[in-house]
Amino acid sequence: MADQNCLIANDWICGEYLRTRGQELSDATLQHVGITLGSVAIGLLVAFPLALLARRWRAVAGPVLGLTTILYTVPSLAMFSLLVPVFGLSVAVVVTGLVLYSLTILVRNILAGLASVPEEAREAARGMGYGPVRLLFGVELPLALPALMAGLRIATVSTVSLTTVGAIIGYGGLGNLIYEGMHSYFKAQVLTASVLCVALAVVADVVLLLVQRLLTPWTRTKRRAKSAALRPAAEVAA
């Protein structure tokens, strides 16, 4: 009985809401995860060749970095609105907007990762008879992984958060529930959807961190040495 009252009293936290709207919540969460995964995956597929092009030709690097920075400056509501005439009121608007945002971070980080590959490693691989493709995927890409994964984590967390704005055209995952709750002053719905959204971002970040650890086991010993090296400097400053 007390649980039912919380819906009527419009409490922020309401067990009855979770019980009766479980389906709605899980549908919204699934849509949110789907939009995020799709956007980040497409973003990665577009960013990788762009970064390779920018590295190969200096003339391409300037325009690519400039254009992605300009796109990143455009506020999300404007970005989605500008894409509406192109795709109509469809999920493609949100996914395209999110892909464009993720490009800025991903291209930069992939470029930084590839630039951090020691020239000796490249020379050694070439000396062992590695061709350009095998050099890229066998040597450079693994060594660029820490920077790439750092970018992927930032892009993913931002994408989870920006997906909510897609609610303006009805494809915002949990944002839809926030948008609906805003109009009906439904506190429990807004708070639950917001908390779930932050939880999604945190889970995505932790999962990617674990993937990064698994993919780059060699960085762990290095990191320990690095943090030990940093500590005395911090103590001197203090």
């Binding site: 958060s161 920006l162 704005v165 926030i178 917001s194 971002a201």
Partner: peptide
């Protein structure tokens, strides 16, 4: 030279929390 972790964590939190959600939460 203090509070470096704080600066980094606040920046991460700022990214993870949706602006739209905070706007609506404050409105309600």
């Amino acid at each position: 030279g203090k509070g470096g972790a704080l600066a980094v964590n606040i920046s991460n939190a700022g990214r993870a929390v949706p602006t739209f959600a905070v706007l609506v939460l404050l409105l309600l």
